[in-house]
Amino acid sequence: MSSLYTFLNTNSLYVVLLVVLVIWVGIFAYLFRLDKKVTRLYEKSEREKENVK
C-alpha cells in the first residue's frame, strides 16, 4: 500500500487518471440503472397500449 502511495505521489498524472476513472465508473453505473428503469417503464407502457387495442 505504501509503495502505491509513493508511486502516486511522484506521478501526479496517475492521480488525475484515477479521479477521472472513478467519475466515469460512477456515471456509467448510474446510466446503467437509469436505462433499466426507463426500459421497464417503456415496456409496461407498450404492453398497455397493446391491451387498449
Binding site: 446510466l31 437509469l34 426507463v38 417503464l41 417503456y42 407502457s45 397500449k49
Partner: peptide, 18 residues
C-alpha cells in the same frame, strides 16, 4: 446507448399523451 434511452423516454411521453 444514450440515444436509445432518450428515445424511449420520448416514446413514453408520446404514449402517455395518447
Amino acid at each position: 446507448w444514450l440515444f436509445q434511452i432518450r428515445a424511449k423516454i420520448g416514446l413514453l411521453n408520446y404514449n402517455s399523451l395518447l
